[in-house]
Amino acid sequence: MFSLSEKDIDVIQLKQQVINPQSGGFVCFEGWVRNHNSAEGKTSQPVLELHYEAHPKLAEKVGKTIITDALQKFDINAACCCHRIGQLKVGDMAIWVGVSADHRQAAFQACEYILNQTKANVPIWKNEFYENGESGWVEANL
């Protein structure tokens, strides 16, 4: 399943969606809001908060396709991804990906695949707000 959330990501509820008795392992990734940006070739700036904007209908459609592709591509049992939208502060969780599988290798690979595909293809955009009062839309960091 893929979802967007305007509230704090509920990790316990998401984990319940991927736990199952046939799995021997579970891998998850949590993406958090950093206190600085890391644009290549630019001076790092202190970041106060982020705003994530999405096209909800197409984001959920593309996200579900990514999960379906991962289930076909890797030997995994279940996968789930949730991405925050709206205003987030430093330390808030922006994305959560969880995968369960019989064995760890497929779970690690599928988790990274879902994360990378989500960052590259799901219509979500990040606007950073800096300590100096300025803001800037961020290019994809793949």
Binding site: G31, Y52, A54, H55, H83, A94, I95, L115, T118, K119, A120, N121, V122, P123, I124, W125, K126, W137, V138, E139, A140, N141
Partner: peptide, 10 residues
């Protein structure tokens, strides 16, 4: 009609 720049989630 909508226009999407490259995604930058995560």
């Amino acid at each position: 009609i909508g226009f999407f720049p490259p995604a930058s989630g995560g």
